[in-house]
């Protein structure tokens, strides 16, 4: 067999090679993967409406504390703001640089900006380009400051709330924030407590102490 092949002329070797590749193509399947990157306006609208494309600041904080690395956190603000402060592990990709960024279609991408508008616009851009795993940090950096860095801890807590806020304080300290206790009016209290219900369940929060392995910044 070896001799047979060695005795073939170059043209016949090339021909044989082409034949084998062609023959294998019979069994290799479709090249398309059904991954047409077209924008379906209705589908996008439904995603937007259901808010399944959002990630809360608490969820993000938990992920960072747990050292999850299956996502990329993208800071859409300009370089100067990014240098002043950014969420740990974030990368700076200004909105104008989104075209040239090295973001991959198969990555989980979380976008944030000061509020929510720039993230939403960037989300649309990426969705139109066929990205599937793009999420927006709800409330952006403002919410991050309010809820994670400088959470208001109200007075007169129920025992259950005390436990809850203990976690909040931990998280806040982890990210170098400072919980603000007292001083808030009664009206504000339930409002601040509300988002806590959406926070991840105890299982995830329990992981908070592992933070000590990771250097907070």
């Amino acid at each position: 067999m070896k001799d047979f092949y060695a005795n073939l002329s170059l043209n016949k070797k090339l021909g044989l090679f082409a034949f084998v590749l062609g023959f294998l193509a019979l069994f290799a399947g479709s090249p398309y993967h059904g991954s047409e990157a077209t924008v379906n306006a209705k589908e996008l609208a439904l995603i937007v409406e259901k808010e399944v494309d959002h990630v809360s600041v608490q969820t993000l904080a938990d992920w960072i504390i747990q050292g999850k690395s299956d996502f990329r956190l993208i800071d859409l603000r300009n370089e100067k703001d990014f240098a002043e402060y950014h969420v740990p592990s974030a990368e700076n990709v200004p909105l104008s640089g989104l075209d040239q960024s090295n973001l991959q279609h198969n990555e989980k991408i979380i976008l944030y900006s000061d509020g929510g508008i720039h993230s939403a616009q960037a989300w649309m851009l990426l969705a139109a380009k066929g990205f599937k795993g793009v999420y927006i940090l709800r409330g952006g950096l403002e919410e991050w400051k309010d809820q994670i860095l400088f959470p208001h801890i109200p007075e007169n807590l129920t025992p259950a709330q005390v436990v809850e806020f203990a976690k909040t304080k931990e998280v806040s300290k982890f990210f170098g924030g400072a919980p603000q206790s007292g001083g808030t009016t009664d009206a504000a209290t339930p409002k601040l407590a509300m988002p806590k219900l959406e926070a991840p369940a105890g299982a995830q929060s329990k992981a908070a102490p592992t933070k000590k392995k990771k250097e907070g910044c």
Partner: peptide, 9 residues
């Protein structure tokens, strides 16, 4: 697609 590849080859 694969069949056509084979046929063209």
């Amino acid at each position: 697609y694969g069949l056509l590849v084979f046929l063209v080859v």
